[in-house]
Design a binder for these strands. Structure first.
Lengths: 346, 346
DNA sequence: TTGTAGGCGTTATCAA
DNA sequence: TTGATAACGCCTACAA
């Protein structure tokens, strides 16, 4: 018998293979394999014998070997920038939950700089992941690579001009317009905007959306200063706005919540201004701290959970059926009224 | 020629194998393999031909197949509770950075409940990871399984009684004692403690450390109430303490920063108390928001970066040399003076 | 330096 | 229902 001659004892103690189990159970190796395959046809007697032997040896099917032959790794890559992850851990949590509920493992790639995406993409392709969730930007060529390889992927909160790709987004411009509407309607006439990092698509959409609507409403006193999504840059942003406008604007729109909180603190603690009495501050995201009593921020909350769930199911569907056409799902943000902005009662 | 007969054309367009490359380059498959192995001996002519063909076909070595034969997946599992991750995304960031710098991929497992660890461990073993970072608790039997399989693992901020295991910790009790010392020295005599979830080892150590030192210093007015690490439970904790002691204590020690911030806000906004004038509040961790101007929390900061780096290098060393004996590395926390507690100037 | 051949641990396809 | 046998894509002696 081949199976008994090829391995007198366990090569590595505690790393039994299906051959070892077969030998102990005195059945064929393929029988062992079948016992570990959900809907296979095995007699209960066989199953019992095999399971007993497997138990004894501490056998576990080798997922790597399985992947090789099935051409399914049951792994999905999640690519996320450190920035995003740091300020928005909820996103990864929800993605991880969703995939794990469907029996899929997450191979995590965090990017320190967006430019790291090149080497990361290389890794992703080598590891034969079944799909990719991209919460980072990709160039056209990089998208080409994924498409050529037939790896399903979905963008999170970004997309590609002039190209049909899978994407789950929150309508940033819409949210920005809402904020502007409510602020103007409540009488604010001078505005400051603290944008996010230059390479952030989300920040650009939020900033542009706000500027556009302000223009439509004929608001002329508007200044934009750059931030980098950090608390500190929100605080610094307020001072920049002040010097740019010659005075503090009546309302400040920050491209994310964390900057808005920095801005509120700078107003209150450095400039001794009342928020919202002297200054209204609003943000985007709906992160945890925005709801804390010291801030109670007015913001456009992103439906993270639903977005993650959408991304997960879009990927899974396309793993099952790669011919599915690209789809873009856009969620509206949720305008959350806090007390950081002077607004009319809804 | 076997190589040319086995695959007339690319099976899946864009998924070339080393055989495909070999055929196009008119060399053997093993030659292709060698060209992609760092320190192999290949003539530059050969390398050029192979690389050209590989480029044309978009060939990338299949990491799964490689893992199967080398018995090295170059993947490490990171197990972390959602709780920890949500409040401390920095930890995962630093781990991911460290591993990726060493050419190792992270397979992420987030736990909603600690009890999910069973199924997660099963996955980990099946996926043949080279090592495991455990930021979650493990039972003795679970540790047995890993050890029997010879998978190196390191605990983060937890350990196992009566067992030599790899661990990287921050000395929680020490930090707690420091806090108590400084508070008592500044004249505080009545204390409240808001603990973390019952199943958190870290919370237990912090709480115990504080209680012990308070006992040694002869402080009698001490109440402990349970929290769950959330902002809300910190706020609720203060009210619980008040009803338990009959009044608000002079100092509140929270088992993490986020609860401390909730506690500060409850004091200021609900009870109209001055912090630190009427009440001192301290926490543990050193998270970002603790440094925000609205809080400026006195806390014991964990050296996350160094801890993650230690965990990474301990794992990597043990992947290289599995015979290395277990090691425990304990870091001291960093007492960070904010203005949330009335303390003597250092 | 290059090619041949044998495995790594599974699943899949057939006969039996 | 069971058991041979051939892949999956690569690495690695060993021989040339």
């Amino acid at each position: 018998m081949k199976s008994s001659s090829r391995k007198p004892v366990l090569a590595v103690p505690g790393r039994a293979t299906s051959y070892d189990v077969a030998r102990v159970a005195k059945v064929s190796q393929s029988a062992v394999s079948r016992c570990f395959k959900p809907g296979a046809s095995v007699s209960s007697k066989m199953r019992a014998r095999v399971m007993k032997a497997a138990e004894e040896l501490g056998y576990r099917p080798n997922a790597i070997a399985r992947s090789l032959i099935t051409r399914r790794s049951n792994m999905v890559a999640v690519v996320i920038s450190q920035q995003t992850h740091r300020y928005f851990p909820e996103l990864l949590d929800e993605l991880s939950r969703g995939f794990s509920a469907r029996g899929i493992r997450v191979l995590l790639f965090t990017l320190e700089k967006e430019s790291d995406i090149d080497v990361v993409l290389e890794q992703i392709l080598q590891y034969q992941v079944d799909g990719v969730v991209e919460a980072a930007r990709l160039s056209g060529e990089q998208v080409d690579m994924l498409e050529k390889r037939g790896v399903p992927f979905v963008f999170l909160n970004r997309s590609l001009r002039d190209r049909p790709v899978n994407a789950v987004c929150c309508d940033q411009a819409e949210g920005a317009r809402w904020l502007v509407n409510r602020l103007v309607e409540a009488g604010h006439r001078s505005f400051g905007i603290v944008s996010g990092p230059a390479d952030s698509v989300v920040s650009a959409e939020r900033t542009q959306g706000a500027l556009e609507r302000l223009g439509e409403l004929g608001i002329r006193q508007v200044a934009v200063v750059p931030g980098n999504y950090s608390y500190e840059s929100g605080a610094a942003g307020l001072r920049l706005l002040e010097s740019k406008l010659g005075r503090v604007p009546e309302a400040v729109i920050c491209a994310n919540d964390v900057m808005a909180l920095g801005c509120m603190d700078a107003a209150r603690h450095d400039l001794r201004l009342g928020v919202p009495a002297d200054l209204s501050v609003v943000g985007f995201d709906g992160v945890g701290p925005a709801r804390w009593k010291s801030y109670d921020l007015t913001t456009v909350q992103q439906p993270v959970r639903r977005m993650a769930e959408a991304a997960v199911s879009m990927i899974v569907e396309r793993i099952e059926d790669p011919t599915l056409p690209p789809e873009k799902r856009t969620f509206s943000g949720i305008l959350t009224h806090g007390s950081s902005a002077r607004l009319r009662k809804p």
